[in-house]
Design a protein around this nucleic acid. Sequence first.
RNA 1: GCGUCGGUGGUAGAGUGGUCAAUUACAACAGACUGUAAAUCUGUCGCCUCCGGGCUACGAAGGUUCGAAUCCUUCCCGACGCA
Length: 429
Amino acid sequence: MNFKIEKKLKGSLGRVGVLSTPHGDIHTPAFVTVGTKATVKSITPEQVRDSGAEVVLGNTYHLYLQPGDEIVRDAGGIGKFMNWHGPTMTDSGGFQVFSLGAAYGKDISKVTKITDPSLLIPERFDDSDAPRLAKIGQDGVSFKSHLDGSIHYITPEKSIQIQHNLGADIIFAFDECTSPAEDTKYQEEALERTHMWAKRSLEEHKRLCAEEKASLAGSLSESVDSALPLGSSACETPRQRTFPSALFGIVQGGRDENLRKKSATFIGQLDFDGFGIGGSFAKEDMSTAVKWVNEILPEEKPRHLLGIGEPEDLFMGIENGVDLFDCVLPTRLGRNGMIYTKKGKVNITNTKYRTDFNPIEKDCECYTCKNYTCAYIAHLFHGKEMLAGSLATMHNLHFIVNLVKNIRESILGDTFFDYKEEFLKKYSK
RNA sequence: GCGUCGGUGGUAGAGUGGUCAAUUACAACAGACUGUAAAUCUGUCGCCUCCGGGCUACGAAGGUUCGAAUCCUUCCCGACGCA
């Protein structure tokens, strides 16, 4: 993997670059499409590509449980398995520590609206207090499968091993994504753990890379004998597998300035190929948190703001030195009938769209807008037709991916701040 | 014509003397969603409301009762059976 910065945004941390992977280049800043279970829900890889997306992010925990990382490995890696030929990433399962742990059964998200300190969790609840599917220990995390209830213990080493089997180009260190409701004392404790796990993830990654390099050299010398034996069953034939070429460490620290800086310093000094910025934020302080971190992280390496992706967040992140974003919103909102437009989000299932025979946006170049009306899409949603979610997803993905592309262009054309102001003025009206 | 069973809110369909403005599902309406437990979830869903409550309602009209969607009478409508 190679990262080259092409241009910097004057007066800020922002930059434009190209991240090269074995499966192609990613033009940064870029929006990474989320394909948790080796599929971007409701659309095909061709449709993902047509939306303009360059890279897809799968998930360690989900693919480990189903179909199993060894199957993905034998399929030739996540890209080949899902028929996505471009760059791929996998998240480590660290987010599931939050979503299946502290957030399980509760109405909390990693971007919180709670800024009132009195609503923070003053002390850790006893484990029996609330049902959780993820329980954190010093060494790793015990997950109770949401699919069948079976118990799985994921350590940093295990996460990295799974990710090497999944074979994405870029993988992430195993971390603990904390809840925004946790107090500073807990955030500090969790941060120590995440740092320890970061080192262990890195060591395991290096060990596996060395192993893979050795086995690859070995298999090359034997390649003369590699023809398939007669009668071998196709389904038992492992395809040539792919290996991760980069490991990103993850900065945590919640909403605390000292912890964020401490984490950026610690993680930034380790020999990672790039960095994820994880954990929870409040909308209001997200920009300062990102700035604290990116001022410290080594400039020449890429930074990925994990799980963030509302339009205003993208401007904020890019201005503050973020190169990559991933977010489930465009796909999830799409399936739920919420559509991105330049004038803000609209709920296509609202009554007024039943008789609106215009496309979602007349000047939108996406497949959905070029071929279908609001009335038709509304009809599909009301009829609970599968195509509804697909068409909405294609539009939303195109909207967000192209927004980031436009921002990239605006930096190259020295119009970033004008573009930002113009866009947000219309969008938030 | 006789008999039997039935007629409940937009729909289907519970309830068969007070705890019923009426279970539930669907439809409708609105909202939420940030490293996907998510094609999911939440709220509203007779009318009015100073959100305390008030009013009108279970085919129609009477009646019994402290009290009726629920019991009785008549009528109207529907399904089925027998002539």
